[in-house]
Design a protein around this nucleic acid. Structure first.
Length: 104
DNA sequence: CCCCTGACACTTA
DNA sequence: ATAAGTGCCAGGG
């Protein structure tokens, strides 16, 4: 059901809440995949919903740009893929053109 | 790198 | 409840 929490002053579902909670824990230089997030919150198949939740989120406290696809691609970003790519490079996550998910 | 199909889960209108 | 939209994933082009 809908519920208010500390991490959001707007009404959000528990699902979104869980997504934000996970993503917030990712620190600089680290990375997480949508699949991992989905699995951690208890919905391994809800990877698309995870993306949906992050897409709507604009809270700078939640580093959405550190969440990428498991196939090694960037994925999308609510502020533009270019921006996401630049941010990841600054944090040393991307190696030249080809890169894999780090920190396994 | 980009794009398409199919299928799954979730949010929003 | 239905339809549309989402940053997926796994295949393939």
């Amino acid at each position: 059901m809908i519920k208010k929490t500390k991490i959001s002053n707007k009404q959000v579902s528990e699902f979104c809440n869980g997504v934000y909670n996970i993503v917030r824990t990712v620190k600089q230089g680290q990375i997480m995949t949508y699949s991992e997030v989905a699995r951690i919150i208890g919905n391994p198949n809800a990877v698309r919903a995870v993306g949906n939740a992050l897409n709507k989120n604009y809270d700078p406290d939640i580093s959405c740009h550190r969440v990428v696809r498991s196939d090694g691609k960037i994925g999308g970003y609510n502020r533009g893929r270019e921006n996401k790519l630049a941010l990841l490079k600054k944090e040393g996550i991307i190696k030249l053109k080809i890169w894999r998910i780090g920190f396994y």
